[in-house]
Structures are given as structure tokens and as C-alpha cells.
């Protein structure tokens, strides 16, 4: 069943001859429990696509559907979450780890006991020791911070999570750990995921389907199993050969 759908979405900044198109007639969808990898170089429109899918930016034309209904960010806030690029800036440096993880849930409940218990559960799920909850972000490593960001994203049991270059800033061994963690958590929780990266190898590891963007347009949309053989666009092949 389709969870999130971008239907002929165009995002244009400015008007007239100076208008810049960040996305042109982009269409793709993410099914329940599916991971869609979104690949492309810098400036290809990946992050704009993510912000449109999360309801942070309205499309100039086209539609974004969540569960077949037009996306309303505020109404669907708990249903969708994001894990963003910079481990350093993913968490408020003034807030403790536990407070950061708890924030999305506190929007929905004032039961402090329930929130505390859920935070402890989330720390356990991302394999972080309970005592780390009292620490601040600067006391954690990059990998630990990204685990906290994942715990924060999972605390409301969302149905859709965007991972926007979520492992790009980490070193290779930590990347592998985080990718395995995401894979395990997705198997346990069954959320749909849009995994954005410029690294085709990372996307192929996680994704069920790969969408390739270039210059604000989708140039390829293929099943991950077909990636090696199925890419038809020269740009997609060039991305594969970079590895």
C-alpha cells in the first residue's frame, strides 16, 4: 500500500526568467515498510524532495499525498520523522540526550512517567546505555549522536522516516553500524523510509528501490535488485561506476 506519494511535484524559486527549478515534475512513491533510496549529486534536488515529502515546503505545482490524502504536516506530525545530516547539529546542545529524545512524544502526552519509560526503551533499542540519557550532545561521539537522532525519530512510532544523508558525516566503520541499526529497526517497526544519499553503495545496501535525481528531475526509478543491470540512464550508470 502506498504511504507517501509525490505526484508531478515542481518546486520553483523566484519568478520570470530568473526562476530556479529545484524540482521539475518529480513523481515517486514510498510504500508501507519499503525503503526508497534517493540518489544524486549535490544540487540535484534530493533535499528539496525530502522537505516536500515531510510537508516542510509546499510544492509550486503537483501534489503530495500521505495515505492517499493531501499531506497536512501538523495533523500528521507524529506519523513522520526525519534523521538529518549533521550529527553535531541534530541535537540541541543545551538539552540532555533524554530531553531531546522525549521532545516529539511530549507534543502528544504530558504523562512524564510514560515519556521516561519510552525514552529508556528507545535508548535500549538503539543500543545506548541508559546513563547516556543524562549527557549532553558534546559528550557523545558522532555515531552515538546519530543513534540518539534515530531514537528521537522512532519515539512516536512513525510510519514514515526520511534519512537525509544520515550517515554521510560518519566514518566508514560507524556508517556500517548505523546502516545495520536502521535495517534492524525497520524490520522491527515496519516504517517506510526515504533514504537520501549521494553514495550509491549505501543506498543499494538499504533500499528496495532506487530513484536517481539530476538537475531537479527523476532520471531513473528502478528496483534495487535491478540496479546493476536495470539502470538505463547514462547518469545513473556513471553513479554506479563511481564506486
Amino acid at each position: 500500500m502506498t504511504l507517501v506519494e509525490l505526484d508531478a511535484v515542481t518546486v520553483r524559486f523566484g519568478t520570470g526568467p530568473r526562476a530556479v527549478h529545484a524540482m521539475r515534475e518529480v513523481s515517486f512513491s514510498v510504500d508501507e515498510g519499503q525503503t526508497v533510496g534517493l540518489v544524486g549529486e549535490s544540487g540535484s534536488g534530493k533535499s528539496t524532495a525530502a522537505s516536500v515529502a515531510l510537508g516542510l515546503r509546499a510544492p509550486t505545482t503537483g501534489a503530495v499525498l500521505f495515505d492517499g490524502q493531501p499531506l497536512r504536516r501538523r495533523r500528521m506530525a507524529g506519523e513522520m520523522q526525519a534523521v538529518l545530516q549533521h550529527p553535531m547539529w541534530a541535537l540541541n546542545p543545551r538539552m540532555s540526550v533524554a530531553a531531546s529524545i522525549a521532545e516529539p512524544l511530549q507534543v502528544r502526552t504530558r504523562d512524564r512517567g510514560a515519556v521516561r519509560a519510552r525514552v529508556a526503551e528507545m535508548l535500549d533499542q538503539v543500543a545506548l546505555a541508559p546513563e547516556l540519557g543524562a549527557r549532553h550532545p558534546h559528550e557523545l561521539s558522532g555515531g552515538q549522536r546519530q543513534r540518539v537522532a534515530i531514537a528521537r525519530a522512532l519515539i512516536t512510532s512513525p510510519r514514515f522516516i526520511v534519512f537525509d544523508e544520515a550517515v554521510s558525516a560518519l566514518d566508514v566503520s560507524v556508517q556500517a553500524q548505523i546502516l545495520q541499526l536502521i535495517q534492524r529497526l525497520q524490520a522491527e517497526h515496519g516504517f517506510g523510509a526515504l533514504f537520501i544519499s549521494h553514495d550509491m553503495a549505501v543506498v543499494r545496501y538499504l533500499a528496495d528501490r532506487v530513484v536517481v535525481m539530476r538537475g531537479g528531475e527523476v532520471v531513473e526509478d528502478a528496483g534495487a535488485a535491478d540496479v546493476a543491470a536495470g539502470f538505463t540512464h547514462p547518469y545513473s550508470r556513471a553513479l554506479l561506476e563511481e564506486r
Binding site: 506530525a77 520523522q81 538529518l84 545530516q85 547539529w89 541534530a90 538539552m95 516529539p104 507534543v107
Partner: peptide, 23 residues
């Protein structure tokens, strides 16, 4: 990113301004 995450999570603008920006 933590402000964007708070917006995605549905945290209200006054709370974001007080909790994240002011501090």
C-alpha cells in the same frame, strides 16, 4: 537540524523559539 526536527515533530512555534532559539 534540531529545529527542523522539532518542526517535523509538531512542536509549536512558541516552544521552538523558547526551548531551542532562546537557550
Amino acid at each position: 537540524d534540531f529545529v527542523t526536527s522539532a518542526r517535523i515533530s509538531g512542536v509549536s512555534a512558541p516552544v521552538i523559539m523558547a526551548r531551542h532559539l532562546l537557550t
